[in-house]
């Protein structure tokens, strides 16, 4: 029963919040450009509209093209089960750790990259090729960062990692966490296809990566592709806020009220992070494609320094 509640809360919260993040992001960017911009909840309407529309499918494509949106969305949701939005639903455990999370998301990415090649379009190939490069360069940073956290928590399970952080005081006063946090921010930007790695609002062939891969999609397929990307972005943001900015330890209540309070805190934190990401996007320019390896190297070095400090400081409880 605990597990059923946990799964339901995870799915409902993640599905509800994911489009909001994109809305807030766009709103902040619009305001910075002195535009009024669409309301933050615009993406819900967009998704609804796309679901209602007819679907155009390229006559070159095969079943891979049509299966990919469902697999991308389903893997993102399955991955979301592993990253608890609140630690107040303790006692419920889905058997899986962050390595499973990374390789589940890899399943979705594999299909997205393959589907991009399925229409015979040059844009698809280009996006898929760039995604292949960026995802491989960023992968070591994700693993080393999460390994560090796993070593500190003495467990790879993300609920355990999140619980352990709550006992360490303020994580971001600890050099280990600072390094890993910065690495994770870069990882988030890369995985969420944000400036300076990718620009989600462009359709210029020179710059687009994620958009190039889903260029041929329309109707409900596009809706699921976009929703899947939003959920994946939220997974990485959830990791960030629940590990590095824990607030659940301040909630001394118990029961339903604690869960609700913790969820409200979670949503507020996500909104703040979404705004910060938007600010990063406003303040930076998109990197040249072949400068991205430098950014990935920076992420890896930060993660590596993080784990070195863990080894030096021992236990990470500085």
């Amino acid at each position: 029963m605990n597990n059923v509640i946990y799964i339901l809360v995870q799915i409902v919260v993640i599905l509800a919040v994911a489009p909001l993040v994109n809305g807030i992001n766009r709103k902040v960017k619009a305001l910075s450009q002195k535009r009024k911009g669409a309301p933050p909840w615009q993406m819900y309407f967009d998704l609804y509209k796309l679901l209602k529309k007819n679907t155009v499918v390229s006559n070159v494509s095969s079943w891979v093209f049509k299966a990919a949106p469902y697999i991308v969305f389903a893997t993102a949701l399955a991955g979301a089960l592993l990253v608890p939005v609140t630690s107040k639903l303790a006692g419920s455990h889905i058997p899986g750790d962050f390595i499973l999370l990374i390789y589940i998301l890899a399943l979705g990415r594999f299909f997205m990259m393959a589907a991009a090649l399925d229409t015979g379009s040059t844009f698809g190939g280009m996006g898929s090729s760039r995604e292949a490069m960026i995802s491989s360069l960023i992968e070591p940073s994700i693993l080393v960062s999460l390994f560090t956290l796993g070593l500190i928590a003495r467990s790879f399970s993300l609920p355990e990692i999140i619980m352990s952080v709550q006992n360490t005081g303020i994580p971001l006063s600890n050099p280990v966490y600072i390094m890993v946090f910065l690495a994770m921010v870069i990882v988030l930007i890369a995985e969420a296809c944000r400036i300076p790695v990718d620009d989600p609002s462009t359709h210029l062939e020179l710059t687009m990566i994620h958009e190039a891969m889903i260029l041929e999609y329309s109707g409900r397929h596009l809706a699921f592709m976009e929703y899947g990307a939003a959920v994946k972005q939220l997974i990485f943001m959830t990791l960030l806020v629940n590990i590095f900015l824990p607030t659940d330890q301040f909630i001394t209540l118990s029961g339903l009220l604690a869960v609700v309070l913790s969820l409200i805190m979670y949503v507020l934190k996500i909104i703040v992070v979404a705004m910060v990401i938007a600010m990063i996007e406003i303040k930076t320019v998109k990197l040249r494609l072949f400068s991205i390896p430098n950014l990935a190297a920076l992420a890896f070095i930060l993660a590596f320094l993080g784990i070195l400090q863990y080894f030096i400081l021992g236990g990470g409880y500085a």
Partner: peptide, 19 residues
């Protein structure tokens, strides 16, 4: 830790290769 990074990098490159 380098082995961990290598496994991750090899895994992601293998995915690219087999895509």
């Amino acid at each position: 830790i380098l082995a961990v990074a290598a496994l991750g990098l090899a895994g992601a490159l293998a995915a690219a290769c087999f895509v």
